[in-house]
Design a protein around this nucleic acid. Structure first.
Length: 626
RNA sequence: GGGCCCGUAGCUCAGCUUGGAUAGAGCAGCACCCUUCUAAGCAUCAUGGGGAAAGGUGAUGGUCGCGGGUUCAAAUCCCGUCGGGCCCGCCA
């Protein structure tokens, strides 16, 4: 909001004149700004403390100096300035600020809080890239929710975001599932991803046998060659599984723009092109003798300076292409990322993926279709588990080594911590996700959460008679899960518990929806007309209403911080403050029938708009009544 | 052998990027308030008793894992150390 900018530039001007040699600029001053405890004022800067060392003066003297300098003829939102403990504390003019905030929210509407920091640069976000042979479990869900929210946040920061999903339909996992499909003789009798996932667990019980292993290996080879009945069937199974997984995504309101299939990457010979660039640039080398004879490798010595992770006295090389000519995981990812960054253009063809996707069109690579404008991002964001940090660093280092340093610098790995359950891991292979009676899948979680929400919603006589009960309770159920998953910083490993995930109390998704719904009812009952705010700011007091104004005014700061740090939890934190300050206001100050009603309705509306926008960044849609 | 992440109230977690005033939320427990701009049910002329939560307030609760260092100032930066998780493969 303009408040912070105003304050910073006023201080900057004073500092520049008083201490021209201090090298303290707007950036440092902006970093020194904080919202102090109420007694001190509305906004503070600790910059005199920093200047004290440089100027060799007492901080409080410096603060007083700066303050008197600002006072001379500077017309701002600041009403008065005070020195305290070396800080510059400002009291904001509540009338002007109230007018400014309510007007800004009214004018910007559903863009309120947005930022132009992205300048329309294209960002490619990849998530959650689940193997197409099992249902999403709660760990995959965490990945997808983080990816979806980061995408929303970046879009709100004016980046052009392309949401991609990578489908590895050529992996060992798919080959094993295909074997199960052909040999176990079971028929799909439930949601396809669930069924296939259970089959996969069963296959893994039998994989000990050499016969089975050989048959699976043969299937894998057939898949990779890409021709023949088995390959066709493999892709068909994968597609059916993805279709089922996307039903899950859609039920959570998670969507993508395009899915890239591994088999299409192979068909387009992207891998050969990538290796070719690697060899020609000297980043990759073919070994003719020694331990890695016949392989294409990267010499770790060449990228040692890139990250300490590559310090390994036992291994001096990393194999990229095996001696039998097959590609390792890193090779595939390398090729994929060279496409993402626009280094390679294999001429993918895209067509409508025809899967459930929140009513949006999602495209898929394939044999047929037409050329489209996907890929070539200025930046790439990968939401991938923290255990893949090494591989992600390697990827980045190799692309840099090929001479694409600028492109490589655009790759960001968002390492999220794995989700475990009290009893153990969620391993797809061993079937940890199947759980004990209640599966730890995204589908079951949503079902449980919505059921609980429905139960609670029914307690309300008014809502329970509304035709929208199910719509409302489903929204509440989704909100509870999303808020719970996104409030925790991504990198923390979490232990899942049903009790926590289904918590509707305290600061939670349902709480935020509840507070929004209350605001909407006030507006309705108060007969708010949604007219342009007409300077009612003089009705603002310095009480709970002003505290709310300050929080609403800080929306953009929160969004920019969340965008810069790729961190949905920043938004969750902001939403918490927003809801809390509204509740305090709502409990403490009458709106309808008060002398300040015009202004307070404008404020309630500003709150509702801000809350809706911010919840939207967490992928949470609001409800109008509850 | 090397690297990364985590360690903050009894529990679950923010805060650390960019050092700054008494370290913040929620849950549980304690003491209260409210009954409306959002409800049930009891009695009623007004109103009263009563009291639900996805409501509010207050109090309680902290060696910020531990030990050093840098600094006017450290949860935050640096070094070391302990505990937990993960990674360093011709697996994906």
């Amino acid at each position: 909001m303009a408040l912070k900018t105003d304050f910073v530039s006023a201080i900057a001007m004073a500092v520049k004149e008083l201490y021209p040699d201090s090298a303290i600029g707007e950036a440092q001053i902006a970093a020194s700004i904080s919202a102090p405890k109420k007694d001190f004022g509305d906004i503070s800067s600790s910059i005199p403390l920093r200047l004290a060392g440089i100027a060799n003066k007492r901080p409080n003297e410096i603060a007083v100096e700066i303050i008197s300098h600002i006072r001379h003829g500077h017309e701002t939102l600041i009403k008065s300035l005070k020195e305290s403990g070396g800080y510059i504390n400002a009291i904001v003019d509540e009338t002007k600020y109230a007018d400014m905030v309510t007007l800004a929210v009214w004018e910007e509407g559903d863009r309120y809080g947005s930022s132009d920091m992205g300048s329309s640069a294209k960002v490619i976000a990849e998530f959650p890239a689940v193997n197409p042979n099992k249902p999403w479990h709660i760990g995959h869900l965490r990945n997808a929710l983080i990816g979806d929210s980061i995408s929303d946040i970046l879009e709100f920061c004016s980046y052009k975001v392309e949401r991609e999903d990578y489908i590895d339909d050529l992996g060992l996992q798919v080959a094993q599932s295909l074997w199960g499909y052909l040999k176990l003789g079971a028929q799909p009798d439930k949601k396809f991803d669930q069924w296939l996932g259970e089959q996969y667990v069963e296959v893994n019980r039998r994989i000990e046998s050499d016969d089975v292993r050989n048959e699976v290996a043969a299937l894998l080879k057939a898949l990779e060659e890409g021709t023949g009945e088995q390959a066709e069937l493999g892709r068909e199974i994968s597609h059916k599984c993805v279709e089922a997984q996307y039903q899950t995504a859609s039920s959570y309101g998670i969507y993508h723009d395009v899915m890239i299939w591994e088999s299409d990457i192979v068909r387009a010979r992207l891998l050969d092109a990538a290796i070719d660039v690697g060899l020609r640039s000297g980043a990759l080398e073919k070994r003719t003798e020694g331990k890695n004879a016949g392989c294409i490798v990267v010499d770790l010595e060449k990228i040692r300076g890139f990250a300490k992770d590559f310090d390994n006295p036992e291994e001096h090389e990393k194999v990229i292409v095996r001696s039998d000519g097959t590609a390792t995981y890193i090779a595939k990812d390398l090729a994929f990322h060279m496409w993402k960054l626009g280094i390679l253009n294999p001429g993918f063809r895209y067509s409508d993926a025809r899967v459930s996707n929140c009513g949006r069109r999602i495209f898929s690579t394939g044999k047929d279709g037409s050329a489209m404008d996907f890929g070539h991002g200025a930046a790439v964001i990968n939401i991938i588990g923290s255990e893949q940090r090494y591989a992600q660093l390697m990827l980045k280092a190799i692309i840099g080594l090929m001479g694409y340093e600028k492109e490589a610098a655009g790759i960001t790995h968002i390492p999220y911590g794995l989700v475990s359950v009290a009893g153990g891991s969620l391993s797809g292979r061993q079937g940890g996700w199947i759980g004990d009676g209640k599966a730890y899948t995204a589908d079951v979680l949503l079902l449980e959460s919505c059921a609980k929400a429905l139960e609670m919603t029914r307690l309300s006589k008014r809502i329970s008679q509304s035709a929208n009960v199910k719509t409302i309770s489903d929204a509440i159920g989704r909100a509870a899960i999303k808020f719970e998953f996104l409030r925790v910083a991504a990198q923390s490993a979490v232990v899942f518990s049903w009790e926590k995930a289904l918590s509707f109390e305290g600061i939670s998704g349902p709480y935020c929806l509840y507070s929004y719904a209350r605001a909407r009812r006030v507006l309705e009952k108060g007969g708010y007309m949604y007219n342009k705010p007409a300077g009612h700011g003089a009705m603002a007091t310095r009480g709970a209403d002003f505290e709310l104004i300050k929080v609403i005014g800080a929306a953009r700061d929160a969004v920019e911080k969340a965008g810069a740090n790729h961190s949905p939890s920043v938004i969750a934190d902001y939403v918490t403050q927003l809801a809390t300050s509204f509740s305090t206001f709502y409990e403490g100050m009458a709106v309808i029938g008060s002398h300040e009603m015009e202004f307070r309705l404008e404020l309630v509306n500003a709150y509702a708009v801000t809350m809706k926008n911010m919840l939207g960044l967490l992928g949470i849609e609001v409800v109008e009544e509850m």
